[in-house]
Design a protein around this nucleic acid. Structure first.
Lengths: 152, 152
DNA sequence: CGGTATCGTGGAGAATGTCAACGATGGAGG
DNA sequence: CCTCCATCGTTGACATTCTCCACGATACCG
């Protein structure tokens, strides 16, 4: 049942397909967010800042996003300069600076989230709802190491 | 059943998960290929050159890889400088230059393909064989627009 | 022949990835 | 208290990648 190596195709490689699909999604989402002055990266940081009521450390941001901490600095710099997030030192650990969304940040997020979701949904138009859930579960396990499926 | 927008999480977004997983795969594969002087990109070009018995136009390479043609030029430049591929003008259309793998290119591919596949398989270790087929099918439809599932 | 499109190539500038170092702080142990 | 070591944020440097534009060469179409 194993194909000989000579019969393999790049277009059957899951790594290649992941990279290809990811590129399509990122391009589509960047285009959708462009008019709001956001890119996928800064939008992701904004979302995480909105999700964390008490703020997120930049170390955690780097961890979740899979980025080098030095990249997070620049992303937060831009968002802070735009007044979308604040960066305040933690009282528990003065090394860490907690990133929190401002009112303006939350407002922009509320305005943009539909556009971003629509861009993603457009790319997913070929999949049924069931297939999307399945894909999300599989990708979640690859990207985040989640064990089981949806938790109840 | 729809969550309010305030309850959505970035880690549930398929676009984010795709980007995250793709990054993991690319990093792992790059690390595996590093000692052979290849990166994911050049390795992909080499694979496509090996698959096409009559050579591939750089236009087609750009199309399949989802890259700008100007990037393909540099990739082929490197591979050609290493003696892994040749770039010869097409007899049908002298504008196009067909990229073909040399004997050295095919030899290197045979040597490396196992290492690259192992890197991908390692990332997929959390998925069953059935889940991998399923994931490949779903990604293939997203990345390549394939309609149905596996053709018989 | 003239107009238009395509292929490969080069160049510019932004965005991203990777790595090493540093100051400031925290934590553990003597 | 003091020293050693780890962590967080930051900066800098450098390579890779992305995006777009323009050009010469060739093809196609009328």
């Amino acid at each position: 049942m194993d194909l000989t190596t000579d019969e393999r195709r790049l277009t059957d490689d899951i790594g290649f397909l992941l990279s290809r699909a990811s590129g399509l999604f990122v391009r589509a989402t960047n285009a959708a967010l462009a008019s709001y002055g956001l890119r996928v990266r800064s939008y992701s940081v904004l979302l995480l800042a909105c999700e964390a009521t008490e703020g997120v450390s930049q170390r955690d941001l780097a961890e979740v996003l899979g980025l080098d901490p030095s990249q997070v600095v620049l992303l937060v710099d831009d968002l802070a300069a735009s007044g979308l997030v604040t960066r305040e030192p933690s009282v528990n650990d003065r090394r860490t600076r907690l990133v929190s969304a401002t009112a303006a940040g939350r407002a922009l997020r509320a305005e943009v989230v539909g556009v971003a979701d629509a861009a993603v949904a457009d790319q997913l138009s070929g999949l049924t709802s069931t297939e999307r859930f399945l894909l999300r579960d599989l990708l979640s396990r690859l990207a985040l190491g989640n064990r089981g499926s949806l938790p109840a």
